[in-house]
């Protein structure tokens, strides 16, 4: 610096010859987030406590929102009556059949669209046209087609899971590194071998994140489908609770749905860890 020699020290006495020094301050690490354990759990617990205290002191009216303890009591009642297994069992069966059939079909069609020019030209506009239709709107139609029993419920879930999987699969296949495919061709691998050993494993991350979305859609549709003509099922339980204005049961039912979502999400995370370990 040019004016260094003119500096005067704090006493105003001697001119200071040394250049002005200061440490370089830290300017940031790129907004990086770090895992904080138990914070999520704590937020959850605090909310529950506030809610419980609010209910007990009467700040929250019982008619508007029952206390968590009341909802838990309703849940225990459900467990003790033996109806929990029936409701959850019925729901799980619909969910499993609908989700796996929908995902499997979606995988097949998505692969076809990803690999064949004709399938792409013919089917991808169709998929774009049908995907945004809310499948709940089609439920009455499905009831006419497949009957009011299990058929229409499974079909709704199947349909809901099918489209996200199709789109995720062919999107994943589109972004597979073409040099890997060319490598397969250069070593004389058959078309089927290239699909099975190169294309699908490379598209798997996209396919699994598609499944994460379609699993949530499946749960949403499950409840909607069970609100029409179902004796058992979590959706039916919630609907009945709503009709009887027994909000404690309603909250218990919703909590079961939330748990179901968490479990499915956890399962997919496990699948990702098992199949995509090579990414880390």
């Amino acid at each position: 610096m040019a004016d260094v020699t003119n500096h005067v020290d704090k006493n105003g006495a001697n001119p200071v010859a040394a250049p002005h020094e200061r440490p370089v301050y830290f300017r940031g690490g790129g907004f990086r987030t770090e895992p904080r354990r138990f914070v999520g759990l704590a937020v959850f617990a605090i909310l529950l406590i506030i809610w419980e205290v609010g209910s007990r002191t009467g700040v929250i009216s019982e008619l508007v929102l029952p206390a968590p303890s009341q909802a838990f009591a309703a849940f225990m009642e459900l467990v003790n009556s033996g109806n929990l297994q029936k409701h959850v069992g019925a729901s799980l069966q619909r969910l499993t059949i609908g989700f796996s059939a929908g995902s499997l079909l979606g995988l097949v069609v998505g692969t076809a669209i990803g690999l064949s020019s004709y399938a792409r030209a013919g089917l991808s506009p169709l998929v774009s046209a049908i995907f945004p239709i809310p499948k709940i709107a089609l439920l009455p139609l499905f009831i006419i087609w497949f009957g009011i029993g299990e058929g229409s419920k499974v079909a709704t879930i199947l349909f809901g899971c099918f489209f996200p999987t199709v789109i995720a699969t062919y999107g994943g296949i589109d972004s597979v590194d073409r040099t890997l495919i060319r490598m397969g061709q250069s070593f004389g691998l058959s078309r089927w071998e290239i699909v099975r050993k190169i294309v699908l494993p490379a598209a798997l991350p996209a396919i699994l994140s598609g499944m994460r979305i379609s699993a949530s859609i499946a749960i949403i549709l499950l409840v909607a489908a069970e609100m029409i003509g179902a004796e058992y099922g979590i959706g039916a339980y919630v609907l009945l609770a709503g009709n009887l204005m027994s909000t404690d049961q309603l909250i218990a039912g919703v909590a079961i749905l939330s748990m179901l979502g968490l479990i499915v999400s956890w399962l997919i995370t496990r699948a990702e860890k098992a199949f995509l370990g090579w990414r880390n």
């Binding site: 890997l180 490598m183 691998l189 050993k197 490379a202 995509l276």
Partner: peptide, 23 residues
């Protein structure tokens, strides 16, 4: 032999070699 190696990231070294022998 490709410029960017063209190895399958999910296969080990021996499995990458094995890929072209399997058929």
């Amino acid at each position: 032999v490709f410029q960017d190696f063209a190895l399958l990231p999910w296969r080990s070294v021996e499995d990458n070699v094995s890929l072209v022998l399997e058929r």
